[in-house]
């Protein structure tokens, strides 16, 4: 499989978009970390990049890449090569390039200026979200019929996970505020990878606030060893399930 991924990677690197993305992340995070006199404020800005920009770029880039490499996929499918292998190679190629962009662009500045708990939580979440949204984007592209629909679908998904979902949660929490909602909030946070990642970072960044009220629940749950396992497990599910669904769809698809 790495044989094919190598060519996918090679193709991506030549387009220079990934390079531009890396440089963008690097400059933005470096200037934030250098300019802000207190690092917690810089981390806050980085948090926004990780939670908003990263998923968006992963989704859009992956979708565009999928349609741009349609010829390649077609060519490969006439070769003795299984569809699963083709799609997994594409996934590996795209995620390796997006991950390296993230770890070089944000990872290096964070390690230089903020190598603390919050920093590592940020890197973990960023890496996980990159993979999750690459996987979701593959599902979106395989499902949609053409490029425009694919990108539209991807943007819609981003809109949902980054914005609409939290609005719905707010609505639910207020509608049922008379009931005990501890378990529900845990469940709701697991159903959106962005929320899950955000809470994971918050455990380090806002540990004081999280100890109050129901926050203590998060601290007890996510902060414990099993909580970290839970977070990692759910993130893995978020990576594997869309990819699995994409492969299933792709295997049945006419090229």
């Amino acid at each position: 499989m790495m044989k094919l991924s190598k060519y996918v990677l090679y193709d991506i690197l030549r387009s220079k978009i990934i390079l531009a993305y890396t440089i963008f992340l690097f400059i933005v995070s470096l200037s934030m970390l250098q300019m802000e006199d207190n690092s917690s404020k810089a981390m806050l800005s980085l948090l926004n990049i990780v939670l908003i920009v990263l998923p968006l770029v992963s989704l859009v880039f992956t979708t565009i890449h999928y349609y741009n490499s349609y010829e390649f996929i077609e060519l490969m499918s006439s070769q003795p090569m299984s569809r699963t292998r083709i799609l997994l190679s594409e996934f590996a190629g795209v995620s390796i390039s997006l991950l390296s962009a993230f770890f070089i662009g944000i990872g290096i500045p964070v390690l230089l200026y903020a190598a603390n708990d919050t920093g590592f939580a940020l890197l973990f979440t960023g890496g996980a979200l990159t993979l999750v949204f690459t996987s979701i984007a593959f599902f979106a592209s395989v499902s949609a019929r053409d490029k425009a629909r694919g990108i539209g679908f991807a943007l819609l998904l981003w809109f949902y996970f980054a914005l609409i979902y939290d609005g719905l949660v707010l609505l639910i929490l207020f509608s049922f505020s008379d009931y005990p909602l501890e378990k529900l909030t845990l469940l709701l946070s697991a159903l959106n990878p962005i929320d899950l990642g955000r809470i994971f970072i918050m455990l380090k960044m806002d540990v004081s606030a999280l100890m109050g009220y129901t926050g203590a629940l998060y601290k007890d749950f996510f902060g414990s060893g099993s909580g970290i396992l839970f977070t990692t497990g759910i993130m893995l599910l978020w990576i594997i399930l869309p990819l699995w669904a994409a492969i299933r769809k792709f295997n049945k698809k006419d090229l």
């Binding site: 193709d11 070769q79 003795p80």
Partner: peptide
């Protein structure tokens, strides 16, 4: 169905050859 190895025996020339642009 599934096993792609039979395509080893096939050479295919498509109607419109489409290939990765950058290659």
């Amino acid at each position: 169905d599934g096993d792609p190895s039979y395509r080893r025996d096939i050479g295919y020339m498509p109607q419109i050859g489409r290939y990765p642009d950058n290659m």
